[in-house]
Amino acid sequence: MARRKVGGTPVELTELGFGASTIGNLYRVTPAADAAAAVDQAWEAGLRYFDTAPHYGLGLSERRLGAALRGRPRDEYVVSSKVGRLLVPNEEPRGVDGEGFVVRDDLRRQWDFSRDGVLRSIEDTLQRTGLDRLDVVYLHDPDEHWRQAADEAMPALAELRDQGVIGAIGAGMNQSAMLARFLRETAADVVMLAGRYTLLDQSALDDVLPAAAELGKSVVAVGVFNSGLLSLDQPTAGMMYDYREAPPALVTRALAVAEVCAAHGTTLPTAAVAFPYSHPTIINVTLGMRTAEEVRRNVELHHQHIPEGLWDDLRARGLIRSDVPAANGPGRSARCL
């Protein structure tokens, strides 16, 4: 699988990445054997970029990912994790985590973007994963913590990067405007953009994508199915969009996009995975993968040919913005124009 370099750093990501939130029991239990099999299948398929975070299952995702990668050549793969949420003892457990993960709540999350918090979080992640280093570290959802994240957390990460302890640094969020600020105003090399450059939402064209292009920095796209609405050939009422039930108007629009995809001989999910590469700053799409079967499906979607003219047709019909770039980034143009 092709790799692309992160900004001006030595880190290279495979074009498709393994999102490990689901193996942290996101929304439902994932058996340990299924989680291990998913990582094994991803490795067999050539994926070498794996993303996790302390937030995912109160550390379960990090532990499972580390165990599944143990014994594999360390220089062959890239792991990213995140800082900003320390895991601390929960003095008032209720039995199950209340933030979307089906795990015991013996621990709780504590926001902390201080220098000490960053260092402690990285050390805790290394202990949970059993890894000797992290290749990429993102600030995780610093929406309400800009000042501390920009003034304390990012300089701490930059110092570790400059010392060679971390390969690349950045921030990951569900909004694009603040990510643009991180690229323009801090030492960030890369941002993880969730759901803001998809077939249904191209708002990142207004801020973070131009910033990345201007500064020679990189973007990793996640949430490309917008929580599910773009994941099936034929969207239906009741599907999720950005973590809640999709409004009828968006379901109608997704159906219209699906019809255009079908007319071009492809499917909505295939187009959803390929679309982010329409912008040259997006070097990777990372998808959540819970089982070996999900890995196989996602890899197949990634390798599918996108018919010539699809994006042009969607633009002409007003289903994607007119300023979506006409050609895909390096390494993808041959099959995704």
Rank of each mutant, 00 (worst) to 15 (best):
V251G: 09
L209M: 07
R115E: 15
P325M: 10
D151S: 14
E92K: 11
E294W: 01
P276E: 09
V285C: 06
P31C: 10
H264V: 15
R28E: 15
P307Q: 14
A334C: 00
H55R: 12
R181Y: 05
V220P: 01
G228E: 10
H279F: 02
D135G: 09
L205T: 04
Q234Y: 01
A316W: 06
G228R: 07
V118F: 08
V285T: 06
V220A: 03
Q148R: 09
R161G: 03
E300D: 14
H145F: 15
V191Y: 03
S81R: 02
V190W: 01
E62C: 09
S203I: 06
Y197E: 04
L134Y: 01
R63S: 06
F113P: 03
L230R: 04
E185W: 03
T125R: 02
T266M: 13
P247F: 13
E293S: 11
D105G: 14
G95H: 12
Y27G: 01
E293W: 00
V165E: 15
V295D: 06
A221L: 02
T30E: 10
V273A: 06
D242Y: 06
L337F: 08
V220K: 01
D233N: 13
A20T: 01
R28K: 13
D97M: 11
N90V: 07
D112H: 08
D34T: 00
G24A: 10
W146P: 00
N298K: 02
A327D: 10
Y77R: 05
R115W: 12
G288Y: 02
L87M: 14
R109K: 13
G19Y: 03
L47K: 00
F18A: 02
S121Y: 00
E123K: 05
R315K: 15
I122K: 06
D242I: 07
I283G: 04
E300G: 12
R315Y: 05
V257W: 07
P210N: 03
V102F: 14
R3W: 10
G57C: 09
P247V: 13
R290I: 06
F50L: 07
V299W: 05
V295G: 05
V29E: 14
P54M: 11
L47R: 00
F18R: 01
F225V: 08
R315P: 00
P235A: 13
T252L: 12
P89Y: 14
D207S: 15
E214Q: 13
A2D: 11
P330W: 10
G17E: 05
R244V: 04
A20M: 04
S80C: 00
G84F: 05
L250R: 11
V6A: 08
